[in-house]
């Protein structure tokens, strides 16, 4: 890869490439597998340095990449301030970056600003504990102001075959947005042990 292209790629990653050039480079990204792979590596390197969750590199590789990058004088000089900034970086940055690594087939490249679920105002604000469930709708809509959302622990379960059946059958009757959420959650729920095969007798268990 020539240096000019390398430089353009770097500038695009730094959000310093002119929009027109950005679009041209994005077109090239969609055609050039080597360039695409390089783009992905930039994203992963950034995520590895931050050691943030969501990027799943094997430990030895991550360690080697980290060591090489930290050995660069230019990088080492920036390490301390970056560490200070780490706390402000958001959880999903490496994730989207790895997505780009997985497959960029686009006409133009755009940038997503730092943001997280906690950074957005929740839909409902309450100053008092919620009322218990009733069969009558509440009288008034709550205000749309900010409270700090609670980070809930993971509560996914391994879907049994039967539950999988139910989820798939139900998805046909869910509104489009809810359907996408439902199926996505099903796809990402905790997988069974590698190669696990559900015995016929267990197929009736709702959840394991």
């Amino acid at each position: 890869m020539n240096e000019e292209l390398d430089s353009q790629l770097s500038a695009m990653f730094d959000d310093e490439l002119a929009p027109a050039e950005c679009e041209l480079l994005a077109r090239r990204l969609s055609r050039d597998e080597h360039l695409k792979a390089r783009w992905g590596r930039y994203a992963i390197m950034g995520a590895v340095i931050r050691a943030e969750r969501g990027v799943r590199l094997n430990a030895p590789l991550a360690g080697r990449v980290n060591a090489v990058l930290l050995a660069e004088p230019a990088l080492a000089a920036h390490t301390a301030p970056r560490d200070l900034r780490r706390a402000r970086l958001r959880w999903w940055q490496p994730v989207a970056a790895s997505a780009v690594a997985a497959g960029v087939a686009t006409l133009s490249i755009l940038w997503l600003r730092t943001q997280s679920p906690a950074g957005d105002a929740p839909l409902v604000a309450r100053t008092a504990p919620p009322a218990p469930l009733t069969t009558a709708p509440a009288a008034a809509a709550p205000a749309d102001s900010y409270t700090v959302p609670v980070q809930k622990p993971a509560s996914v379960v391994v879907p049994s075959t039967e539950l999988a059946n139910y989820v798939v059958a139900h998805s046909m009757f869910s509104p489009p947005m809810a359907r996408r959420n439902l199926l996505s959650a099903f796809m990402t729920s905790e997988p069974a042990a590698a190669g696990a095969e559900e015995p016929q007798g267990d197929a009736k268990a709702l959840a394991q």
């Binding site: 430089s7 770097s10 695009m12 730094d14 959000d15 995520a47 900034r85 970086l89 133009s108 490249i109």
Partner: peptide, 20 residues
Amino acid sequence: PRPLRSNGRLFSLALAWAVA
């Protein structure tokens, strides 16, 4: 040519978006 830089914004996210 620009050298590959590694400032904080290197870690910005790049997202792809295409509209035929």
